[in-house]
Design a protein around this nucleic acid. Structure first.
Length: 262
DNA sequence: CCCTATGTTCCCAA
DNA sequence: CTTGGGAACATAGG
């Protein structure tokens, strides 16, 4: 279930494996994905990510855009045989790219111009506190809901939003327009630090995330709040809490993050 | 049976 | 127009 660092991991690994290669064949296993036309015989010119979307860019402006949603995975295979829950196979001369997705929420689309990647500022490219504060100015959203809103900032999901707010010592229930410039600076710095470390660790494997080659990431060893309800806060020794915010499980330290009412 | 789940989109109400 | 809630999508695991 990939967020920005996981998709970035796939993006970098895919570049090494398929840059310049030609798609020899595509096989849709799950018809729910729809059809993929005109990509066979095309060469891969670039692999890019924006937010949680991944684009394999081909000749003549064509691109294949993947969104893995909750349980989608991309896996590179040299051998034969289908793995369970395989939805799509893209073959190259040197191997095959599998889209595997038990829950079948993942999507693949073909774009004829542009790379079809979504909008929203990228938290890796743009952690500038002035920018963050500017786009938050007229919003009444709770800060955590704001951080995971893909139209505003593309790429953060529940795990990294919890970690970033903990690191920046911000109450997830704060309204975004009340945050000071210092607080946005803290959020920007925390985001950059956490996302870069997570990418270096090839993502967070708390349940089923595996990289392009089937290996687990290592960033789960660095989580300070996510999934740690009832455990001791590494900073103050207090208890990590979990409460729902807009329907999403939210982990936080009431003491370090100055939450009202604990 | 119950509940949970790292995501997105749609409908509806305030 | 913005926001939040709920459902839907479909499956696995505790």
């Amino acid at each position: 279930m990939p967020e920005l660092p996981e998709v970035e991991t796939l993006c970098r690994q895919l570049r090494h494996v398929i840059m310049g290669a030609e798609i020899s064949k595509t096989q849709i296993i799950d018809a729910k994905l729809g059809t993929i036309r005109e990509v066979e015989g095309k060469q891969v010119g670039a692999v890019n990510r924006h937010g949680k979307a991944l684009a394999i860019e081909l000749e003549r402006g064509l691109s294949l855009v993947f969104h893995l949603r909750m349980t989608g995975r991309l896996l590179w295979q040299n051998g034969n045989g289908l793995l369970p829950h395989t939805r799509l196979v893209i073959s190259f001369s040197q191997g095959r790219l599998f889209l595997i997705d038990p829950r079948r929420f993942a999507t693949v689309t073909v774009h004829k111009q542009g790379n079809g990647l979504p909008v929203g500022s990228d938290p890796i490219e743009d952690c500038d506190p002035f920018h963050l504060q500017a786009i938050a100015q007229r919003s009444t959203l709770l800060v955590k809901a704001f951080l995971i809103d893909q139209r505003r900032i593309a790429g953060l999901g529940n795990i990294y939003a919890c970690e970033i707010l903990y690191q920046a010592r911000i109450d997830p229930w704060r309204r975004v327009h009340t945050l000071t410039h210092e607080e946005w600076k803290g959020i920007g710095e925390a985001a950059e630090k956490i996302l870069k470390r997570a990418i270096a660790c090839r993502g967070t494997s708390v349940s089923d995330w595996h990289d392009l080659f089937g290996n687990k990431g290592e960033h789960q060893d660095y989580l300070l709040v996510y999934g740690r309800e009832g455990a001791a806060c590494s900073r103050c020794g207090g208890i990590i809490h979990r409460r729902k915010l807009n329907g999403r499980g939210t982990y936080y330290c009431p003491t370090c993050q100055n939450c009202e009412g604990g």
